[in-house]
């Protein structure tokens, strides 16, 4: 499966062509798609984590005590634990939790125990994904589990940021809304939430940066990400392989370094623009400066 016709016998190629063939062999082509995996994960996780954070922040502000405890407990416990520790056992735990739920639903009459010694055995119908599902379904499921784990962890941080941002909106704004006859709910959704974002943005921008830099841990969640491939491709390749080479992991990791530096630089620029946009018309220093500049 070579792209170029001259790649049929790698051992005879001179250096330049050898590298062209090496970098386009099947394994490398798969590895390149893993950059897409990472970007896709970021694209899905960011809004999901934001939703979790929003829920957590609202819960933490709630008047109902158990809900408030849940919100506060969620944010403080998850923030207290290193993300890597979560990643090491959370995926298996989530997977088992889902399968257990499905098992109760699909096979209520199952005679055997689910936990048999060390084994976790649910009925065939409850398996997630079903064991005869094609490989891509398993991979998508694994990916979604990773997204969910990331979202739960980063949702806690987002909740913390949003909670702070909601409190930062000047009290007078809400009082004015109430004076105009808005109900509490209306004041929350029409005044507090739109104004909150500008206060939340610096914290959320940082969170995005942390999220970007947490993605090298994806391989712990069983997703074949760029770090997995950098290790795999860079490792010493003996005579069993068409393209033998010594330990090149250093070069592959330098490649990853460049990728991440580019990604964070790009994010910084976009977030800077967004911050400008959001400050527009806000009762903050930056908003005031914009207003003055326009006059």
């Amino acid at each position: 499966m070579a792209i170029f016709s001259f790649c049929t016998d790698p051992a005879t190629l001179e250096t330049a062509r050898w590298f062209v063939c090496y970098l386009t062999n099947g394994k490398h082509l798969i590895a390149y798609t893993s950059f897409g995996t990472v970007l896709l994960l970021l694209a899905i996780t960011a809004p999901t984590a934001l939703a979790f954070g929003f829920g957590g922040a609202i819960a933490a502000r709630s008047r109902i005590a158990p809900l408030r405890w849940f919100g506060k407990g969620y944010t403080s416990i998850v923030r207290g634990v290193p993300d890597i520790v979560f990643f090491l056992f959370f995926v298996i735990a989530l997977d088992q939790a889902f399968e257990w739920t499905r098992h109760q639903f699909f096979c209520p009459d199952w005679p055997d125990a689910i936990r048999q010694g060390n084994d976790f055995v649910v009925c065939q119908r409850a398996k997630l994904p079903l064991s005869n599902a094609p490989q891509w379904v398993h991979e998508v499921y694994g990916f979604l589990l990773a997204v969910l784990t990331f979202a739960i962890v980063f949702g806690a941080f987002a909740a913390n940021v949003l909670f702070g941002a909601m409190r930062a909106v000047p009290r007078a704004q809400i009082e004015t809304a109430e004076a105009y006859g808005m109900s509490e709910r209306q004041a929350f959704w029409r005044v507090l939430i739109p104004q909150m974002w500008v206060f939340a943005l610096p914290g959320l921008s940082n969170l995005w940066m942390i999220l970007v830099k947490a993605t090298p841990l994806l391989f712990l969640l069983g997703v074949e990400d760029i770090v997995y491939w950098a290790r795999e491709l860079g490792g010493t390749k003996g005579a069993l392989f068409d393209y033998p080479h010594p330990d090149w992991r250093l070069w592959y990791f330098l490649g990853l370094l460049v990728f991440y530096l580019t990604l964070t630089r790009f994010s910084e620029i976009v977030l800077g623009r967004l911050s400008q946009r959001l400050s527009h018309g806000q009762a903050t220093l930056a908003g005031e400066a914009q207003r003055k500049a326009a006059v």
Partner: peptide
């Protein structure tokens, strides 16, 4: 995916590491 549900072990999934030549490894085709 469950529509095609069948008896036990219609597919046996074989787990390996893929990083221990010559026992198991990922070849150049991936």
């Amino acid at each position: 995916a469950g529509a095609a549900y069948a008896g036990s072990h219609s597919v046996v999934r074989m787990g390996t590491e893929g990083a221990y030549p010559p026992w198991n490894f990922i070849n150049d085709a991936g």
